[in-house]
Design a protein around this nucleic acid. Structure first.
Lengths: 236, 236
DNA sequence: CAGCATCCGCTTTGATACTG
DNA sequence: CAGTATCAAAGCGGATGCTG
């Protein structure tokens, strides 16, 4: 963990979470809750085992995660975020917003895990009918384990796992599902691209992308950083 | 620029800005606007010159910054953020919020540059009297170049540079000034720690920390990530 | 001097193999 | 399952040199 040695809040944050893989470990724990070592290793394709062990040590030392010695029936350790770790969620959310447009040009060989849908779902989707009845949607991306979306009282929650009584089941290639979630793909186009919708389509209309992906289209011509030539701008 | 190869917006963002120093380069450009190579090198103590050149190339290629060939009178290139680069501000803001509490235990040997006050000022301070007259404050930290704060119509802006007619001048050690901005230090304590206030103290009352630094005091006992044992949580 | 490029010693990373 | 051990390759930090 190399430090910057700067008296700056952003640099201090990067001292803790700026190393390679570190924020992605937090992403996994935010998405899935408590994880075993093996779960993390699977959710972080490409990470070396020793690096994962190193990072977990560093994060524990920094007070971001916490090692739960699970009771005898499970007989394994679970890694969980501390409140301080959960507080990193806005950082991941901001990164996700900024990175969203980059997915459009992602190569097909990219790895994918269905739990990577969870944070985008919770950040991007809003319930348009807070007064409506609770609704449950199951998302099946590729042949990955399903994700459950539940909306009630205006809140949208997502978690790994299937549903025994889903109002709606969405299936399809992960790119299509992510495209719909991010508002880059309308449902007609998505259906053409392989999205299958089974069940009560009305609940789908309730959940619509809230955050404008407008910055995806931003051009160099707009909003160019204007030189601030007001008097007194020069350094003393 | 090593990539993660994951179809995930956060991972894609980190592919671009996850390398060491990259986000701090963006911080400098957000704080100061257009910068020369040398300005950046000075604002990033510890960076190797070749690394700075590499990163600038990568960021330009990624569409985050933009090389302005300044007109003959200046005879130098200025690096500026593109709109896509400016859109990284929420990422830096979230990191700053999370990292703020870490400043309390920062070592005294840490480097400091007065422009590192600019983003915290704009993120943390709110004008309590939006209807009041425009006010101008000059901040002098250590013996660094001054920073100007201007508030008008409810907005708080900060920029490098002095003021010819400041309503108020704050001087003192950088740790004290940052402590006041972050709300970690009240004015009495700050005065004892070396803060000097010259001018109309009333304008100081207008600007108060808006964001609660409550998470600085969060304890492990509170809000522990609850296991979600609802039916259907297990993977299929 | 501004804006790099080159070289060098060191650390970190990634891939694989191995162990309790 | 949950790591540790090993090692080649890449990245980093520091110094120095080159070019306009």
């Amino acid at each position: 963990m190399r430090r910057y040695g700067q008296y700056c809040a952003m640099a201090k944050a990067l001292d803790v979470v700026g190393d390679r893989w570190t924020l992605l470990i937090v992403r996994e724990l935010l998405s899935r809750g408590g994880c075993r070592y093996t779960d993390l290793h699977d959710g972080l394709p490409g990470i070396a085992s020793n690096l994962l062990a190193d990072r977990l040590r560093d994060l524990e030392q920094a007070g971001v995660i916490w090692r739960e010695a699970a009771p005898p029936p499970i007989a394994t350790t679970l890694y969980r975020l501390t409140p301080r770790g959960i507080a990193l969620r806005p950082v991941l959310a901001a990164l996700g917003h900024w990175g969203g447009p980059l997915l459009a040009e992602a190569p097909d060989e990219d790895e994918f895990r269905s739990q990577w849908l969870i944070l985008p779902i919770e950040e991007l989707l809003r319930d348009r009918c807070p007064d409506g009845p609770p609704a449950a949607i199951e998302v099946r991306a590729d042949d990955q384990p399903p994700i459950a979306i539940e909306t009630r009282d205006g809140h949208v929650r997502a978690r790994p796992g299937g549903l025994t009584a889903a109002d709606l089941v969405l299936s399809g290639p992960h790119r299509v599902i992510m495209g719909v979630l991010a508002g880059r793909l309308d449902l007609t186009r998505a259906a053409n691209a392989g999205l299958t919708v089974a069940g009560d389509r009305a609940v789908l209309a309730r959940l619509q992308p809230a955050a404008s992906p407008a910055d995806a289209r931003v051009t160099h011509e707009e909003t160019v950083d204007k030189p601030r030539t007001a008097a007194g701008t020069d350094r003393a």
